[in-house]
């Protein structure tokens, strides 16, 4: 066990947890930020995607030790009022079905739009391909990203 200090959604948080605990469980179990989901625990599905110093990162594969002192953004911090263009686009296109994968999808898409404000279908495929959606919302995800890109 050790103490760590992480900035999450702009707020400094101190936690006392095992060194190897992945950020995913720090967020979910220790801090109650349950918007970030567990899907595979092996970096294979993308449901746990968060931003680590702006980069889309798998929270299940990132130990707390590694993120000490870093800045983390989770779905809860993307906006506090659903105002992020992607969230608006997600609502307009009715993207979510069960919704379980959607925090991860939105966080990955947000990182994409940060770098590329007008992504092609190809760009979207490349960026989003590691985010699985069992409900099959892919076509709407693509449309929503294009829609959000127009708003930015």
């Amino acid at each position: 066990m050790a103490r760590y200090s992480i900035t999450i959604n702009g707020k400094k948080q101190n936690v006392n947890v095992a060194e190897d605990m992945p950020l995913l469980w720090v967020l979910r179990d220790e801090l109650g930020l349950t918007g970030t989901k567990f899907g595979c625990g092996r970096g294979l599905c993308g449901t746990c995607t968060i931003h680590l110093d702006g980069e889309p990162t798998r929270a299940c594969m990132t130990s707390v030790e590694y993120v000490d002192g870093s800045e983390i953004t989770t779905i809860e911090g993307l906006s506090t009022d659903l105002s992020h263009p992607l969230q608006q686009a997600w609502i307009a296109e009715e993207v979510p079905q069960c919704g379980y994968c959607q925090s991860g999808q939105i966080m990955t898409a947000a990182a994409l739009l940060e770098k590329n404000s007008d992504p092609s279908d190809e760009d979207i495929n490349t960026a989003m391909k590691m985010n699985l959606c069992r409900c099959g919302t892919y076509q709407r995800i693509r449309k929503a990203i294009h829609r959000a890109a127009k708003e930015i």
């Binding site: 918007g35 989901k37 779905i75 659903l82 993207v95 979510p96 919704g99």
Partner: peptide, 16 residues
Amino acid sequence: GKDTPSRANGKAQFGI
């Protein structure tokens, strides 16, 4: 969709 906003901001409550 009644649940669409909460599925876009992480607030939707699943069993987990």
